[in-house]
Design a protein around this nucleic acid. Structure first.
Lengths: 233, 233, 233, 233
DNA sequence: AATGAATGAGAGTTCATTCAT
DNA sequence: GATGAATGAACTCTCATTCAT
């Protein structure tokens, strides 16, 4: 049985270094791209049909290779999924944290901006997709769940939490309980993501409420409830 | 071929009345209890391993019967799950709708009360568990998902939505977008349910924030944002 | 396990003799009628759905008893079938043979008459039904097949064969090969029986060709080919 | 999901041409032979035990492969049987129809010739076996029965019927009822096939009457009855 | 004697994974 | 390296038969 190296996918002893890449024959270049092609194919299919309903042969087919080839790069469908999750997460949080740190204006605006940015960068794209799948498959992949909690959930909560805290300390916000408020900010978007994944086919809520509209309504409602001096509108 | 009656599980024409129960033979007494025993066993296993990963034979075994016996009481694993949903969820929704209809006071209070009641009756116990399972398995069982959307999600949204609408029309609430507001009311609790199910082992948020505390904070925040005349504190 | 007596169905030690029948209580009389009621129910269902597709519970239900009761009278579904076949066959052959023996007119008329009578008495009713089922199930019940061959097929062929032979010897018929001619007389009706049983649902030939019409055409055609002096109408 | 091509079994795009056959790797050579090996194994088992009583695993085992392999080549046991019918029967019917269309001589001769050819090609070999199986199993497999009626029975009747009709219109035959006459031509051979299958072990009619002899007698008798000008020998 | 709840051996089918080519 | 034919464990559901009541 092929052993997965620490990188997640099967370590290849005959790996070429990047210097040789320029002159590598097409076959070789193809081979180097394979893991990512497979991961992309898998992600697309997991979104379409879910993890369980996606057959490994389909992943291979969409990546343009045969079934057996998948197993040259990943020891199993499960391991492929793990690599997929690890590759797509913990991406933008550090970045956002840095932005937040140097921000100087009203926290309410920062918060709105960050939520919007999160949706644009994460919720919308691959990372959002991985979030959904992770939520649904967590029980089947405990170590992955742990990783996800440590790398994504905890930092995200800390970031948002610190912003709320700052808002309270500057007197911009009322003295709301921080943890619950963080939850109120994150849950609606995450739940929408999940709902659409799980029930979208039968309850197409996006038809009547776009994610952007929800986000607007959410921020309006929450900020209305959050701000110390009762605001505009 | 056994036919599922309107109650969901296979109807038994030879139902005995309660007066005879004391003297009913053991076999008969078992038979009456069987559907619930099977449902309990199934629920426990679904929580532990999920719907898909639970084999029908396991359900039977945990209920202390053989594989075939399950099929005397439920025409299929799917139907068993539907009965579970109806027993645990549909019932409460209809009940709540009836309560809401005859309520006459402030909508804000009704809403708070209903959310609290929902948590006490639903979120807390078996019903909450059924919600989790459904969220996680929906993608792989489209027919079940459709059933759940029709029986649970749509009625729930309609109920909450009608309350918001009523609040707006009486002038108690600001003219918020209804659908998004419904989402803001439901998502936090549902997401908490799911989060605890999926990541509870790694991110035990209940330690620092009880569901009740979250609910209090949620309602405070949302009502603060919802009420037309900005209220106390 | 209950043992089938030589009679086919389970021998009952507490059997009452016919003298007591008149004064037997209703329950007792019911009990005595049970085997036949079950056989009748089974026959009807075998015709409707075939042997394999008829569940033993259905037989019991149609006979107005519970599943378990069937097994008090017959050790198994297979044995019930065997009794059914034995009860319904070897009925009219001896009778027909006697008639043929004393007949004095033209063999052609006798033959026509006998074929018509066979259809009316046998093909049409229970015995015909049993023939169909026997043809289809023979492979699964070898001893029954042997019985059927000995009791039905062989005597029938002998009877018809002797008539042909007589016709040839009297000069009424041409010198046709006897065995093949017997086959030509029997096969069309039997095949029709089978065809209707097996394909009737998809090829409803009776709509366009009644058994009686077929019989007429068959006899016309065959006698035309059989008779020495061409007697065309 | 493998799709059955128009040929009936799962189509393989990577078909190799005969030139490469000699050098094809063993695995490939096996693969090409597999469908037929499986069909042969299935046919043998169906004859021995019937369609219903033959488990798919047995078919695979007799063909020397594992259970799953069967499903690489045929989407289901039913489909395998359909392929068997098409390969063995549909083909011959189309062929015979073509021959009949261009024939120019006496219909009586054509009819005799066709019946003889049918026996030689169909009744005798695998095709005859398929007929028997179908007759015996039809009742339990309605979809198969429908398929067989459409693919085999109806076309066969149409072919023979059109020949009779032609004979009548040319004045060669008397004005017999067509449908019944078709039945008179087909039933004896089919019934013999079935009889031998079902009762051959107990009533070995072939010992005293070969199929060929029966066919001769049948055609002599029927043509004698059919021809307008009595051509007695 | 009658019941019908309970049993459990099997059936067809799927698909992740292996390994000969 | 790549392939895809082959594998076989696993799964749901059926129904003839048993046996406690």
């Amino acid at each position: 049985m092929p052993q997965a190296g620490p990188g997640g996918y099967i370590s290849d002893p005959s790996v070429i270094n990047s210097a040789t890449l320029a002159t590598a024959p097409a076959r070789q270049r193809r081979k180097d791209a394979r893991p990512q092609e497979l991961l992309d194919a898998a992600l697309a299919l997991f979104v379409e049909k879910g993890f369980a309903a996606t057959r490994s042969e389909e992943i291979a087919a969409r990546a343009g290779v045969a079934k057996g080839t998948l197993y040259r790069y990943f020891p199993s469908k499960d391991e492929l999924f793990k690599v997929m999750v690890r590759d797509n997460l913990s991406v933008h949080i550090a970045e956002s944290a840095a932005q937040a740190a140097q921000y100087e204006g009203a926290i309410a605006d920062l918060l709105s901006e960050m939520m919007r940015a999160w949706w644009a960068k994460v919720g919308h794209g691959n990372a959002g997709v991985v979030c959904k799948i992770m939520m649904v498959e967590a029980r089947n992949f405990p170590e992955l769940a742990r990783f996800y909690v440590d790398e994504v959930i905890t930092p995200s909560k800390a970031l948002i939490g610190s912003m709320i805290d700052r808002g309270i300390r500057t007197g911009e916000f009322r003295a709301v309980p921080i943890e619950a408020t963080v939850h109120m900010l994150l849950a609606p978007m995450l739940h929408m993501l999940l709902h659409e994944h799980s029930f979208g086919a039968h309850d197409n809520c996006h038809d009547t409420m776009s994610p952007e509209a929800l986000l607007d309504a959410q921020m309006a409602l929450l900020l209305h409830g959050l701000l110390a001096a009762s605001p505009r509108t």
